[in-house]
Write a protein that binds this DNA or RNA. Sequence first.
DNA 1: ATATATGCGTCACGTGGCAA
DNA 2: TTGCCACGTGACGCATATAT
Length: 300
Amino acid sequence: MHINRLFETVYLLLDRKSITAGELAEHFEVSVRTIYRDIDVLSQAGIPVYMSKGKGGGIRLLDNYVLNKSILSDSEQKEILAALQGLNAVHYPEVDNVIAKLGLLFNKADYNWVDVDFSHWGETNRQKFNMIKTAIINRRVLAFDYSGSYGESSNREIEPVQLWFKDKTWYLKGFCLTRKALRIFRLTRMKEVRLTETTFEKRTVQELELSTAGEESRKIAYFKLHLDKSVAYRVYDEFDEKYIIKNRDGSFEVTAFFPESDWVYGYILSFGSAARVIEPEYIRNKIIERLKETMGQYER
DNA sequence: ATATATGCGTCACGTGGCAA
DNA sequence: TTGCCACGTGACGCATATAT
C-alpha cells in the first residue's frame, strides 16, 4: 500500500471535490478495485469521504471540508491535519510532501495554515519540532525539562510515539521512562529538548494502553450511537467491546467516551447514514446542524 | 528454503440513481 | 420499465515481502 497515494487522494478530493473511482484508478495507474480499498482505509482513518452512485456520481469529501477552505482557521482543516497525522503513523516521512501540497491548496484562500502554526513559534521551536520528528522516526529517546501545570519543572526521558495536533496546540505522546507510562506533553512546555544516543524498540499498542489504564484526568464526554449493520466491520475495531450492544436485526448500539473536542462530529459523520446519535441531545443537534449546512449547499 | 502475509488485479454479481 | 452508469464487495490468483 503506497501511503502517498492515500494522501494524494485526499489532496485530489480537496481540489476536485468530486472524482470517480475510475479517474482515480487511471491517475494512479492502479485498478479501480484498489481505489475502493484505499477509500475504505481513508474512511476508517476518520476522513469523511463518501460516494454517490449513478451518472455524475463519484467520490467526494463531505462538503464542509471543501467549503471551509475559504474560512479562516476552521476546525475542519485541523481535522484533516489530525487525520493525516493519525494515518502518518510515524513510519512515513514522505507525508511532509503532501502536507506541503495541502498547505499550498489552502494558501489559495489566503491562509496557509501549516505555516501559520510555525510562524508563531520562531526558530527555536521549529528546531524543537524537527528534533522531535527525527526522534520519532529514528526511535531515539528524547530528554527534556518539562514544566507542569503548577509551574514545577521536572527532567524527563521519553520514548516519543506520536506528534499530535489538537485544539490549536501541538502535543507529544510518549512513553515516559521514569513514570513508566504513556504521557502527553505540550510542546510549548518542553524546554532544553535534546536527542540522546539511546534508541528503543517500538512498544506494542497493548503495552501503551495498559500503562495509561485507570488514569485519565481530561474532561470526558460520551455519546451513544445507533449503527447500521453495514458498518459492522468498524464497530469492533473502533469501540470498546464492553459498550457494544448488538441488536437482533444486526444493527448496533454503542456508547463511547472521548475527551471533549470538535473532532467527534466529523467522526460521527464519517459513518454517513449508517449512524444515528441517540444521545446526548447537544451532539444530536450539532450533527443535524452540520447536515443542514451541507444540504444548504445544494439549494439556491 | 519454505510458509505466510500483503498488495494488487481480474472477474462476477449486486446495489441504487437516473433518464429515455 | 428498462438499461446504463458508477459504486460495493467477495472470491480467487499472482507477485513480492517478511517471517520461520
